[in-house]
């Protein structure tokens, strides 16, 4: 019974990681840069969500608004911050990205204050019982099924639509994609929009579950998502999803069995180090 519950809790946490890490993978796959500032869209999602929810009383409106604002913000970051320096060595965009993340955190502090915001209404706090012994917050189920649905729809779009196929072709060989009329800028826009919107969805859900949005809420997810995409084999979408869920479950077991001397994040990184010692290319490296 305990195991089932731990696995379920791990999958909930893992879905949140997956939502955040997918955007990083999309950007890495396309541009080969580590988009550290990605976690700022997780935080941005949380802030837009709480502000819209408190104004309108509707969580659905908050989620949609957060995803759209973050998605557009992602496009702006791509066009203004990354595109002009893409031809530079990879550490240049990496440093720009770290700087951007720090600036974003400070911006949130200036605009929304250092102490964080809370929801005026209690969303999704009810409890649901499954199988007679598993109890979840409604919000936790929304996270798991919502992310599964969104990711499922995205993967269908990617394989079944012309735009999706164009994005895959661009990741595979950008120069040839251009030779068939695909604009790298537009594919970049799509990837940044989708990735940032997913992170924003995660940001809203985490802030609802914790009833708290604060400027630094993105920092732990930011480096954990980096760990996940390395674990998943850089650039592999499937690897990222599996790695996110595995990490969630490992953390959930770890906090029970090792929690008295290692905290949650230490467990996550100890696991990452162990896996990379065994498979330096990650669990699902692309050939």
């Amino acid at each position: 019974m305990l195991y089932v519950e731990l696995i379920a809790q791990g999958l909930i946490q893992g879905s949140i990681y997956a939502l955040i890490a997918l955007g990083l993978t999309l950007v890495y796959g396309l541009l080969r840069i580590l988009h550290v500032a990605h976690a700022a869209f997780f935080t941005l999602g949380g802030y837009v969500g709480v502000v819209v929810a408190n104004q309108t009383g509707s969580l659905a409106a908050a989620i949609v608004a957060a995803m759209i604002v973050a998605g557009l913000g992602g496009i702006v970051v791509f066009r203004l911050c990354y595109q002009p320096i893409l031809h530079q060595p990879p550490f240049v965009p990496l440093i720009a990205s770290i700087g951007l993340y720090i600036a974003a955190e400070e911006l949130f502090r200036i605009v929304f204050g250092p102490s964080g915001l809370t929801y005026k209404y209690a969303f999704l706090q009810g409890e649901v019982e499954l199988l007679g012994f598993l109890r979840f917050k409604t919000g936790e189920l929304v996270v798991v099924f919502g992310s599964a649905a969104i990711i499922g729809v995205l993967s269908l779009l990617q394989t079944r639509t012309r735009i999706g196929v164009a994005c895959q072709a661009t990741v595979s060989d950008p120069q040839m994609a251009e030779s068939f009329g695909i604009s790298l800028s537009r594919v970049g826009d799509i990837n940044f929009f989708v990735g940032s919107a997913l992170a924003a969805f995660a940001g809203v859900m985490v802030s609802v579950l914790n009833n708290m949005v604060e400027p630094t809420m993105g920092s732990v997810p930011s480096y954990k998502a980096l760990a996940i995409i390395v674990l998943g084999g850089l650039g592999s979408v499937r690897g990222t999803l599996v790695a996110a869920l595995v990490l969630g479950v490992v953390e959930s077991f770890g906090t029970i069995y090792l929690g008295h001397f290692l905290d949650r994040n230490a467990i996550a990184f100890a696991f990452l180090i162990l896996v990379l010692m065994w498979r330096p290319q990650g669990l699902f490296a692309r050939s």
Partner: peptide
């Protein structure tokens, strides 16, 4: 320089 992860049909589609 084919799009190696894509099917033959999708390469033609691109």
């Amino acid at each position: 320089r084919l799009f190696k992860d894509l099917s033959v049909e999708d390469n033609l589609r691109v």
